[in-house]
Design a protein around this nucleic acid. Sequence first.
DNA 1: GGCGTGACTTGAA
DNA 2: ATTCAAGCCACGC
Length: 108
Amino acid sequence: MAKSENFFERAHEVARLIPYGRITSYGAIAKYLGAARSARMVGWAMNNSSGKEVPAHRVVNRKGILTGKQHFEGTNLMQQLLESEGIKVIDNQIQDFDTLFWDPIKEL
DNA sequence: GGCGTGACTTGAA
DNA sequence: ATTCAAGCCACGC
């Protein structure tokens, strides 16, 4: 028991470690956890993290698109949060994604 | 207990 | 260069 929880909490922890005004991708977290091909589980972990202090809005897919915004309360909430942090988001796509990208493997 | 789906990624054709 | 397919693991029915 609590085996998958480890993965979940680990993903939550990494997501929580994302600095202000920065973003990362599911694959980056998954790879950091040692499950590079399990990026989906990271997304599922975020879904399970609903209600926690996990800034899932700072986690986007590898293209910098707010793929998970649909899972937020509203459809603009995720984009609003990112813009509030100084991140430019246009058409659900993050601008300067390459610059704002935060890699836990490199930073940590 | 089996099958399908899902907030993705990477690799090969 | 683009498009297609497979892989990964957990959860729901």
